[in-house]
Simulated assay, not measured.
Amino acid sequence: MSPPGARACLRARLSGALARLDPDAGPAQGLAELVHQGLDEVPLPAQGRTLMRWQLLCAVAEHDLSLAKLYEGHLDALAVLAEVAPGTPRPVGSTWGMWASEAPGGRTRFEACAADEVRLNGRKAWCSGAARLSHGVLTAWSADGTKPQLVRVAMAQPGVCVSDAAWQAVGMAASASGDITFQDAVGHRVGDAGAYLQRPGFWQGGAGIAACWHGGALALANTLRRAIAEAPPEQRSAFRMAALGRVDVALQSTAALLREAARWIDEHPARDASALALRVRLCAERSATLVLDEAGRALGATPFCRDRRFARMAADLPVYLRQSHAERDLAALGERTAAAEGAPWSL
C-alpha cells in the first residue's frame, strides 16, 4: 500500500492538471493531456490501492463527467491489458477506449490471420470517444459466436470508420459515443476467448464506475451546500437544511460502501466481486439520483439556468447513470443475496 504522502501527491497533481485544462478543448484532448502528464499511471484494481484508483476517478468525474467517461474507459482498457495480456505494447502518449457493449444487430466479427492478428468486420456501437482516441480494446466474435474475444485495434488505419450520426445526446454529448464500422481492419487478439467476462477484474472494474457517478453527485451536492452556507440567515430555511441532510446521508452511505468495497477487493483479489459491484453501483445510482432531485427542489431553477457547470452536470449525470441496468441489476443482486450464506447484513 502506498504511503499517504504518495497518495496525496498524485491527487494534488491530478487536481492541478484538471484546473489547467482548457474547458473548450473537449474531453478527448483533456484525456490526452492527463496521459501526457502520466496521470493514467494509477494503481491497478485489487493490488492494494483500489481506493486510491477510485478517488482519482471520482475527482475527474466531479470536474467533468464526459472526461471521466473517457478517463475511466482508458484506465479500464489498460487494466484489461495488464490482467489478460501483460506486456502488450502501448505506444507513448496513446489514448485507449474500452468498448464491450453488444447492441442488437451491431456485432463485430473477426477472422484469424497469422499469429494473434485478426481482421475485423461489422459494427460496434456505444464507443465513447472513438473519433478522437488512438487505440481501442473491444469485444469481437468468431464465426461460431460462442464467446467474445478481446481485440486491440489502432484507430488510425484504413477500414476503420467512426460515425456519430446516431449520437443525439444532450447529456454526455461531449463523450461522443459513436459507432465504429470495421471493414477488414487489422486487430490483434488479447488473451483467450471469453477472458473479458471470466477474469476477476471484470466486476472490479464495474464497481469503479460507481466512483464516477459519486463524483458527479458530489459536484451537484457541493453547489447545494455552498448555496446554503453562503445564504443570509433568512434564506437558510428548514426545508433547505432538510434537503442537505438527506444529501449528506446518501453521499456518506455511498462513500462508506465504496471504501468498504475497495478494501474487500484488495483483500480478495481473485474472488467473485459481482455482488459487491452490483451493490455499490446501485447505491451510487440511488444517491446520485437523490442528490439531483434534492438540489433542484431546494434551489429551484436558478442553478439550472444561471450556473453553466451545474446545468451541464445535471444534464450529464442522468445519462451516465443509465450505464446501470436498473431493475435487472437489482434482480441480479437479489439472486446473489438469496444464495448467500451466513448473515449478510449483520454488523
Rank of each mutant, 00 (worst) to 15 (best):
G48Q: 12
G159I: 00
I228A: 05
A59S: 09
L120T: 04
S66E: 12
E111P: 02
S237K: 06
A221I: 01
W96G: 00
H214Q: 15
T108H: 09
G38Y: 12
L34S: 00
P91T: 04
D192C: 11
G129C: 02
H214Y: 15
E111L: 08
Q157E: 07
R90T: 11
E260S: 14
R20P: 04
N222V: 06
A277R: 03
A17T: 13
R312A: 11
L78T: 00
L67F: 06
L81K: 08
P269T: 04
Q168W: 14
H135D: 07
G93T: 01
A28T: 07
V249D: 11
A326I: 06
G26R: 07
D184A: 12
A315Q: 06
A207Y: 01
E230V: 09
V92H: 14
A326T: 11
E267W: 09
D316N: 09
R53K: 01
L138G: 11
L220S: 01
Q323D: 15
A229T: 12
S253T: 03
W96D: 03
D184G: 11
W126L: 15
V190S: 05
P303E: 01
A270R: 10
G159Q: 08
V84D: 00
I228P: 02
E83W: 02
H135E: 08
A140R: 05
L251N: 05
K147H: 14
S15W: 06
P344C: 05
D179W: 05
G296W: 06
G205A: 10
T302R: 03
Y196D: 01
D40S: 11
L18K: 03
L57D: 00
G205C: 12
L276Y: 02
R271H: 15
E117W: 05
L57T: 01
Q204M: 12
A169V: 10
G5D: 13
A298C: 08
C9H: 14
M241Y: 13
R53E: 02
L292A: 15
L133N: 07
E62N: 03
L31T: 00
A311N: 03
P23Y: 00
G106V: 10
V170F: 08
V170G: 10
L57W: 00
R263C: 14
E72M: 09
G206D: 00
L197A: 13
N121Q: 06
H63C: 09
E267M: 11
G129D: 02
I265S: 12
P318T: 05
T108G: 09
G334D: 04
A165Y: 05
F110I: 01
D64S: 12
V162W: 06
A176I: 04
L133R: 07
P148N: 01
G187H: 01
E341L: 13
S2V: 13
T289S: 15
R286K: 04
L18A: 02
R225D: 15
R49L: 14
R306K: 13
L321N: 11
R336D: 06
A261M: 07
P3C: 12
E327W: 14
R281C: 00
A85F: 02
G191F: 03
A156K: 11
A211C: 00
R271E: 15
